[in-house]
């Protein structure tokens, strides 16, 4: 196997190297790639969509259809992880509680439903991590800033790098940070798996639904210009706003899918004890 692998790689490598020699000069402004399509995007982005960030305008408008499926890919991954890993909820055999003031750990066997958490008694994992106040407080302190930053990234995708996807990932990462610094059970209690799943579907739905709305208004799918009467702006601004709407959808979807995947991966489907 190793030998075959090495041979294949040698072959592929030689092939690639031979053909890479024929490329246009690196960074050549006159190569076909830079002269055929892209000038249109660069020169018309402002006039067509009023979005200075061409990447955003190409991403969400000119090639918005691609991006819709990009979001769907993420949703698919979330669904796939859930589908592959999620285990049915089972009656818990043992539950650990910790008496916070004394630090005594109590193990309860064969109880029906777990008692509620309280300030004094705290439910903990089997692999218990002592409450690390540094990590915990720092994360808690940082969380809102990360989130507001993420929302800023989503909202300002038009003018600076960023957009729905990046913002969504950061949002998701904030929740993951919360899950890491606290524990998974608390996080799941705050954002349940069900809501994560529904939000992820809803995020893509915002995107596709915006497109479908355009169809209903009698224009092509995802042609945000059709939204102009609804938004009360001209067509160019309608495109700009349409892009924002779909970016929000992307952010919602990506955030919740990231959370969802993390829930399933970090607990191997049991959703009780995470990383």
């Amino acid at each position: 196997m190793k030998l075959i692998g090495k041979m294949t790689i040698l072959l592929c490598g030689i092939l690639l190297i031979v053909f890479a020699n024929k490329f246009p000069e690196f960074g050549d402004p006159h190569s076909p790639a830079s002269t055929h399509l892209s000038p249109y995007y660069i020169e018309h982005t402002m006039a067509d969509t009023a979005v200075p960030n061409m990447v955003t305008s190409v991403l969400a408008d000119y090639r918005g259809y691609d991006t819709m499926f990009e979001t769907t890919v993420i949703l698919t991954a979330g669904l796939a992880c859930f589908f592959l890993l999620r285990l049915p909820e089972e009656e818990e055999k043992e539950i650990y509680f910790r008496h916070v003031p004394t630090g005594v750990t109590i193990r309860i066997e064969e109880c029906g439903a777990a008692p509620e958490d309280s300030d004094v008694f705290q439910r903990i994992d089997a692999q218990w991590v002592p409450r690390d106040i540094i990590i915990r407080s720092t994360s808690r302190l940082l969380m809102p800033f990360i989130q507001i930053f993420a929302l800023y990234v989503v909202a300002h995708g038009h003018h600076s790098p960023g957009g729905g996807f990046q913002g969504g990932v950061i949002l998701g990462a904030a929740v993951i940070l919360f899950a890491i610094s606290h524990n998974l059970r608390t996080t799941v209690a705050k954002i349940s798996e069900t809501s994560a799943a529904i939000m992820s579907a809803a995020g893509v739905f915002i995107y596709a639904g915006t497109g479908a709305l355009c169809v209903m208004l009698g224009e092509n799918f995802l042609n945000y210009g059709a939204l102009a009467p609804l938004l009360g702006t001209d067509r160019v601004m309608a495109r700009s706003h349409g892009i924002l709407i779909v970016e929000i959808g992307v952010a919602l979807a990506v955030m919740s899918v990231m959370i969802w995947i993390y829930y399933n991966l970090s607990s191997a489907g049991k959703q009780d004890e995470g990383l």
């Binding site: 790639a33 830079s34 399509l37 892209s38 995007y41 660069i42 061409m54 990447v55 190409v58 991403l59 090639r63 691609d66 991006t67 990009e70 979001t71 890919v73 993420i74 996807f165």
Partner: peptide
């Protein structure tokens, strides 16, 4: 050229 960047966003995803 912004086009490859757009494509690659998708590829990263």
């Amino acid at each position: 050229n912004p086009l490859p960047h757009v494509l690659m966003l998708t590829a990263i995803v």
